[in-house]
């Protein structure tokens, strides 16, 4: 029977939406990244200049972005692993309350940035405490650790989710077998559970990293005038839409996508057999 005639109309709208408004724009940003300034809109001048200049002008921004997003991802894994493990293995009462709270960071980076901004600003609730301890609030705010803290709060749910999925996929009998073979709790965890949940750790870090590459409000509001403005997301926004250098903005945008893809590819390759 004509299965195809059932399937095709069902998937066509989804394919159309993604092709027209995701893949076509991606193709356009690639083209524009090879044009000078806003020449694409009048008579395009094609050149590699943007890519050549990019690494000279924006090296700091690349470094900052990858440092912030990468570290936030690592912190997410460190905090998120016990969280997922406890939620799945230890806790039965109120488990759904904890699950529900994990949705809140999805409300957006802007609110996280704003909440933390007030937290240690002079006159805020914590600043008095810090003053009493002899720490200047201004040293804590407007710093890399604060931006990283905000970012890791923002993407913690993704880390917990990815780790949780791989923990759920582990057959408990492996762990029971290890215990029966004489391995202690800790040994069982280190030798069986942790290696088996490695795919979740990797995908969790990647997702966290990927989302944080695109954050803007957190680094700009929390990172301070030196670190915070020199991140890729801010440069993409300002070069293209504030100073109308669409070519350069697109080039940075393409580079961010390319780097994300390379990271994904490398990790998937390295973990072949683990990541299925």
């Amino acid at each position: 029977m004509g299965r195809r005639w059932v399937t095709l109309p069902l998937v066509t709208p989804a394919i159309a939406l993604q092709s027209l408004f995701f893949f076509l724009p991606l193709f356009m940003i690639l083209i524009v990244s090879f044009t000078i300034r806003d020449s694409f809109f009048f008579s395009p001048i094609y050149t590699f200049d943007n890519y050549v200049k990019m690494f000279r002008i924006y090296r700091i921004d690349f470094q900052n972005t990858f440092f912030l997003a990468g570290t936030a991802g690592v912190i997410d894994i460190i905090i998120g692993y016990p969280f997922a493990y406890i939620l799945l293995r230890k806790v039965t009462r109120f488990a759904d309350v904890f699950r529900a709270i994990l949705i809140i960071p999805l409300f957006g980076e802007l609110y996280i940035a704003y909440g933390l901004l007030y937290l240690i600003l002079p006159g805020g609730p914590v600043s008095r405490l810090l003053d009493a301890l002899g720490i200047s609030p201004l040293d804590v705010l407007y710093s890399a650790p604060m931006a990283i803290f905000g970012m890791s709060l923002y993407t913690l749910p993704f880390a917990v989710y990815n780790i949780g999925i791989s923990l759920q996929g582990i057959d408990r009998s492996y762990e029971e077998a290890a215990r029966c073979l004489g391995a202690s709790r800790l040994k069982t965890f280190m030798r069986v559970t942790l290696p088996l949940s490695l795919p979740g750790i990797i995908t969790g870090w990647l997702t966290s990293f990927g989302w944080n590459l695109g954050t803007l409000a957190i680094p700009v509001l929390l990172g301070g005038p030196i670190l915070g403005t020199r991140v890729l997301s801010n440069q993409i926004w300002t070069t293209s839409l504030v100073t109308s250098d669409f070519g350069m903005g697109a080039a940075i945008g393409v580079m961010v996508v390319a780097i994300t893809m390379v990271v994904f590819y490398v990790v998937v390759k390295l973990s072949r057999g683990v990541l299925v």
Partner: peptide, 18 residues
């Protein structure tokens, strides 16, 4: 798999042009 900031700019370009 595409960071939102890049996707946003790509969309803007396609709106301007197509």
């Amino acid at each position: 798999y595409v960071p939102g900031i890049s996707y946003g700019l790509a969309l803007v370009l396609s709106y301007y042009f197509v």
